[in-house]
Design a protein around this nucleic acid. Structure first.
Length: 924
RNA sequence: GGGCGCUUAGCUCAGUGGUAGAGCACUACCUUGACAUGGUAGGGGUCAUAGGUUCGAACCCUAUAGCGCCCACCA
């Protein structure tokens, strides 16, 4: 016997254990009958960071994947949901360093690379399974026996092979150029890992004699303390205007502006626009760079915008991406003034050496002011690049890095989406993808970290670069190159984590080995991922898959949105608006959380998460539980060879047809990747149709004396409930699996777990005549209930119902369902009469009239009002139909179906009004 | 600056050419032999605004306003 209330926490671990024991999610054994001739369906999981723990984004992403995976598994496909985790270079290195510090162990540098790596592996062995266990709690039906990690031996081999091959083809190369440098982690990061944050300062100051000072502007003292305080709080958000004196005439100045004053120490030119007449005579002259006391040229370059500022711009090739290009064009020196942690280096005058970049900012401004060279400071709004992991201001910094020629690889990746080899769902994300791919920049793939795939490159004594898959191969190459055995040094850098992630769809299947899994499951069927990592991950998998497998990594890409809080804000720890999916699972059950995710996720749009929603779906689970309990109490047992097409009772035939419709809706919605429609269709069927109507309707059968009817109804209830469990399983795997096992036939257990049962395919069960008949019953009951409520007839009072002049079919219908109608509408009996009795409430169902004659119970005023309201509503609809039907254009141009429909509707409405008006008259 | 998207019931959102929907919230009644995590019945919307296309527009087109996101730039 089922408990009265569904307790998720009690069943979830047990069900998970059942699945595990049965190895239910293992992909088909290749070549065996188990999976050999079934159509493969593979999804690779977006590997979560091994340091991660389940957040709402994971909950959404993995719920959706599991919905598709369970659906296809039930449809008989050989499903592989390939799980695994990502080594997450920076994040993991950080976590372990923090842990070392917290436990007072020697730090990373003290340990040295080998020992530190060892520590990370130890950490992974101990804590790396967290997120995987959390995914299991969510119910994810991955083939856990195939779990992979991006640093696994096999995957590392793939990484090395890809690097070596792309290098050999010139698609990976080394270059010295500006990178986004993270001074906190002391590594280069890619463009994508930089977040531009908008900053606005508050400090302003205007030099008394500034060239652009307006008349009457009061002199202002320069308040260094205030500036220092402001900048300590937020170093960005101010524009500083400096006067650079001309070398040959120090009394004359050229004014330049910057938001990063300290970079002026690395200036190597001032640029003006070639056509800017204000400066024509100055081009070719030099200015005396203050503080640094270097002479730098005034050059003409189109980069300078006469409209902006003074039209003259300082050029710092080593610390600004645009200036770098200008510098290349004019052969300017590149003076790098920063070290790896963002302190000023030996390239600057003694006074500034060793200063932090922001301290140097204050000092430069103060010193220029002291020299009378500070024209003004104004607050400005500008975006400042910040590291997405470190949160610190990123510096453009000149270093040697490895790059991948993404532009070249992107070409085929663009074509593959253009010609439909891979399809985005919804399609509009293709535009975002193309936009990015057409403007793709060289991908900086090297990172100055210790945790990751070390780059397979070695340097000879003369700097010659050897790239090969192993130290042995490199030694041979060096021998050949130098003519003798030569010691080489390995490049200490590791690869961007996304480099290995890019190979995920084939590396996890065993590539570069020739495995049966690669042959069978690549290209994968579907990728389910958030819109935020289209660039990071999807684009790069497309490039790598097409290059190394000559085929797309996935046929379809289902993009979903982000999970926001109720106010539409991104969830973040600092805002304190994070919901923890595990807490929600504890509170409401995994099924409720999953259903919420599936129901809220609509075609790539962000979703605002609300706990109330989860609560609602927890209630839904309880509803399903209680419906099962009802079935159990009424001994509704399934029959082995039950045939829904063979039932005779109209109610049973009706629910069979409704089930067919529901199955079709859910199937179609899932096929179209519209999980919200699928979830809603299943919800509406189970609660609205099965529980609210069918179970209520057949209670008469179940408590009646007709044993044959009782038996048929019991087995129909059992069968329908089975279909409900199937329709809900991919959303609510735990409760459905539990109920599936529980609803046994006279102690005979199920042959299969629900997750391995077959998806229903129903046809030919729906019958319009039956729908009309049961529809009539439903409408009649609803109408009576409505009248009762509006007449304020107490719920406990039973009333008589008089059917007015029903024709034969109506009499038949009523006779067949008399008990049911009477029970649901709380009637004391149904009789027939030629006309409605006096002093009765009248209701209309289709073309049938019925009356509730209850002298003394009916509130005549209320009844009048009710009828008036109904007539008014019908009249207004008639007017609408008339307007249409009287419009010659509508009649001649509209589709015939539309015309016919309008006419039908009008006739129906007229009949209704007629009957309602008659009822009014009878009231007097 | 370029791109994408949104504006529908109090709230959160579905709905892509033919009778405006759901969940939650709200109101009234109901502890009816599955379920109060429930049942029954209700109230509530000039579908952002202005034009246009169409027999017909929440839906297609144009413009405007507001909001959000992504990319680029920022002297």
């Amino acid at each position: 016997m089922l408990e009265k209330t569904f307790q998720p926490a009690e069943i979830e671990p047990r069900i998970a254990n059942e699945w595990n024991k049965a190895e239910a999610f293992k992909a088909g054994q290749i070549g065996s009958t188990a999976g050999g001739n079934r159509q493969p369906f593979c999804i690779v999981i977006p590997p979560p960071n091994v340091t991660g723990s389940l957040h709402m984004g994971h909950a959404l992403n993995n719920t959706l994947q599991d919905v598709y995976v369970r659906f296809e598994r039930m449809r008989g496909k050989d499903v592989l949901w390939q799980p695994g985790t990502d080594h997450a270079g920076i994040a993991t290195q950080m976590v372990v360093e923090r842990q070392l510090a917290a436990t007072k162990q020697p730090g990373r540098r003290e340990l040295g690379r080998k020992k530190f790596e060892q520590k990370i592996w130890e950490w992974k062995a101990e804590s790396g399974g967290t997120i995987v266990n959390q995914l299991k709690r969510l119910g994810c039906s991955c083939d856990w026996s195939r779990e992979r990690f991006t640093m696994d031996e096999g995957l590392s081999k793939a990484v090395v092979k890809v690097f070596v091959e792309l290098h050999a083809k010139g698609l990976i190369y080394k270059d010295k150029r500006l990178v986004n440098w993270d001074p906190k982690f002391q590594t280069a990061i890619s463009d994508l890992e930089v977040n531009p944050l908008e900053k606005r300062g508050s400090f302003s100051w205007l030099a008394p004699t500034a060239t652009d000072a307006k008349d009457g502007e009061p002199d202002q003292p320069f308040d260094l303390d205030a500036l220092r305080k402001t900048l300590a709080r937020d170093p960005s958000g101010h524009m500083y205007h400096f006067r650079y004196p001309l070398a040959d005439d120090p009394a004359r100045f050229i004014v330049v502006a910057t938001t990063r004053p300290e970079t002026m120490l690395g200036d190597t030119a001032v640029a003006v626009h070639p056509t800017d007449e204000r400066y024509t005579t100055l081009v070719g002259k030099t200015v005396r760079l203050p503080l640094a006391n270097r002479d730098i040229p005034i050059i003409a370059d189109e980069y300078s915008d006469p409209e902006k500022g003074t039209g003259a711009v300082k050029i710092t090739p080593a610390h600004d991406f645009n200036d770098f290009e200008v510098g290349r064009r004019h052969n300017l020196a590149q003076i790098n003034i920063l070290d790896a942690v963002g302190k000023l280096n030996a390239e600057v005058p003694d006074a500034y050496r060793g200063l932090d970049r922001f301290e140097a900012r204050v000092r430069v401004v103060a010193d220029l002011h002291a020299l009378g060279l500070l024209a003004k400071i104004e607050p400005t709004t500008h975006t400042v690049p910040h590291g997405d992991r470190s949160g610190v201001v990123i510096e453009p910094w000149l270093t040697d890095q490895w790059y991948c020629n993404a532009g070249e690889l992107a070409k085929e990746a663009i074509r593959a989406v253009e010609d439909g080899r891979t399809e985005f769902v919804p399609k509009n994300w293709e535009k975002t993808y193309f936009e990015w791919m057409h403007n793709i920049q060289p991908w900086c793939i090297s990172r100055q970290l210790w945790w990751g795939h070390q780059i397979p490159a070695w340097y000879g004594p003369d700097g010659h670069i050897f790239v090969a898959a192993s130290a042995a191969e490199v030694a041979t190459a060096a021998q050949a190159h130098y003519g003798k055995a030569t010691a080489l040094t390995r490049d200490p850098d590791v690869l961007d984590t996304w480099f290995s992630s890019a190979l995920w769809p084939f590396s996890t299947l065993g590539w570069p080995e020739k495995t049966a899994e690669v042959d069978r499951y690549y290209p994968t069927a579907l990728l389910v991922t958030g819109r935020d990592i289209i660039f990071f991950w999807v684009a790069r998998m497309m490039m790598m898959g097409l290059y190394f497998k000559q085929d797309v990594p996935f046929r379809k890409i289902a993009i979903h949105g982000l999970v926001l809080d109720e106010k539409g804000q991104k969830m973040s720890k600092s805002k304190g608006n994070v919901e923890d999916p595990l807490v929600l699972i504890d509170e409401y059950g995994a099924d409720a959380l999953r259903f919420t995710m599936a129901a809220l996720s609509t075609q790539g749009r962000d979703i605002r998460f609300s706990k109330q929603r989860v609560e609602g779906y927890r209630n839904f689970a309880t509803k399903l539980w209680n419906a099962s309990r009802f079935a159990e109490m009424n001994e509704c047992v399934r029959l082995k060879d039950f045939n829904p097409a063979g039932v005779r009772d109209p109610l049973n035939r009706w629910i069979a047809g409704e089930t067919e419709r529901a199955v079709k809706s859910v199937t179609e919605a899932l096929e179209a990747h519209r999980t919200n429609d699928a979830a809603n269709a299943a919800y509406e069927f189970v609660w609205g149709t099965f529980c609210d109507w069918y179970l209520e309707l057949v209670k008469s059968h179940l408590s009646g004396d007709d044993e044959a009817l009782k038996d048929e109804t019991r087995s129909t209830v059992a069968w329908t409930l089975d279909q409900c469990l199937k329709l809900l399983h991919q959303f609510m795997p735990f409760i459905t699996e539990e109920l599936w096992a529980h609803m046994v036939a006279h102690g005979v257990a199920r042959e299969n777990l629900l997750c391995l049962s077959s998806w229903p395919v129903l046809d030919g069960l729906a019958d319009p005549a039956i729908d009309a008949e049961v529809g009539f019953v439903v409408d009649l009951v609803s109408e009576v209930r409505s009248v009762r409520q509006e007449m304020n007839i107490p719920a406990g009072t039973k009333v008589p119902l008089v059917m007015v002049a029903g024709d034969e079919p109506v009499r038949d219908r009523v006779a067949r369902h008399e008990d049911t109608i009477a029970r649901l509408a709380r009637l004391e009996g149904i009789t027939f009469a030629a006309s409605a009795p006096k002093e009765s409430a009248v209701l209309v169902v289709g073309d049938t009239t019925a009356a509730i004659p209850l002298k003394g119970l009916i509130d005549f005023e209320a009844e009048k009002k009710r009828l008036e309201k109904e007539i008014a509503a019908a009249d207004s609809d008639i007017a609408k139909m008339d307007a249409k039907l009287e419009n010659p254009n509508f009649m001649s141009r509209a589709k015939p179906e539309a015309v016919e429909e309008a006419q039908l509707r009008k006739t129906e409405l007229h009949g209704q009004v007629k009957r309602l008006t008659a009822a009014m008259k009878r009231l007097g």
